[in-house]
């Protein structure tokens, strides 16, 4: 096997990264995509609102060149955290070992952006739960056949929770999949500089996500997001319009994910 472009990693890292680059099939025609997520520390919360556990799905990764052409990233099948299309990111919490890296390959090229979907596309989101394979087999990240998976789950201790997923999904009961796309998909498409896939990382700014939330007094945001002003603002931080369940201005206004140096 030919040697791939070698990447150097700083030794000092707060993030425990389970890198599988060494075992990854790699040829001169492709380049690795290694996306690390790091939790931007939260301002201190009430004891009942900590620890914060954050888990989310990332799907449909693309690298985008200067002409706006998007090339799909093929994720490396690496259960239990990712298959070829979707990865589960789990930032340090009290009951998970955590997974902070999404890795795959893309044809070699000059890219300016990395894009991903925060969640799971409709076509994959309502499969038979009995047959769900990793990383889609997590009961804690699943609502019901009708409503599909939780795209993002944030639990602040036992005080406040935000569970993001599709809403307005119609079928004859909670254990029947919808035939048509849910009315509010709530799928944010996140675009960041391409450097996050090589020598950068993605900081997840929980402070920005919950800027409008008082965890000890506010109601959870777990479905009817448009009904509560707090929840509308949580979705707005992700670039989503809670009323339509779709991106506002391509979700470019999102304030939660940002590029940073490793």
């Amino acid at each position: 096997m030919k040697r791939c472009r070698s990447l150097s990693w700083p030794r000092k890292s707060i993030v425990i990264a389970a890198l599988a680059l060494g075992s990854q099939a790699c040829s001169p025609a492709t380049q690795p995509v290694t996306t690390r997520f790091a939790l931007d520390p939260l301002p201190s919360l009430a004891p009942t609102a900590s620890p914060a556990t954050l888990r989310f799905y990332v799907s449909d990764l693309h690298m985008v060149n200067a002409h706006g052409q998007a090339t799909p990233v093929r994720l490396t099948a690496a259960p239990p955290y990712q298959d070829e299309r979707t990865a589960l990111v789990s930032l340090p919490g009290d009951d998970e070992s955590g997974n902070t890296v999404v890795h795959g390959t893309v044809p070699r090229g000059d890219y300016v952006h990395l894009e991903f979907l925060l969640g799971i596309p409709f076509a994959r989101n309502h499969g038979n739960p009995l047959q769900a394979a990793p990383p889609l087999d997590r009961p804690a990240m699943f609502w019901a056949w009708q409503s599909g998976h939780k795209f993002l789950r944030l639990d602040l201790g036992n005080a406040w929770s935000f569970h993001l997923g599709s809403t307005g999904c119609h079928s004859t009961s909670a254990v029947r999949p919808p035939q048509d796309e849910c009315r509010r998909p709530n799928l944010a498409r996140i675009r960041l500089p391409a450097a996050v896939a090589t020598d950068g990382q993605i900081e997840v700014d929980l402070g920005a996500l919950i800027a409008a939330v008082n965890p000890t007094t506010d109601e959870n945001c777990m479905g009817s997001y448009a009904d509560a002003d707090t929840c509308r603002r949580v979705l707005d931080a992700l670039g989503l319009d809670a009323g339509t369940g779709r991106c506002l201005a391509d979700c470019r206004g999102q304030r939660v994910f940002r590029a940073a140096r490793r």
Partner: peptide, 11 residues
């Protein structure tokens, strides 16, 4: 197929 236990306890 699940390698990630998700034990939770609640009051």
């Amino acid at each position: 197929d699940v390698a990630l236990p998700s034990t939770t306890f609640h009051n």
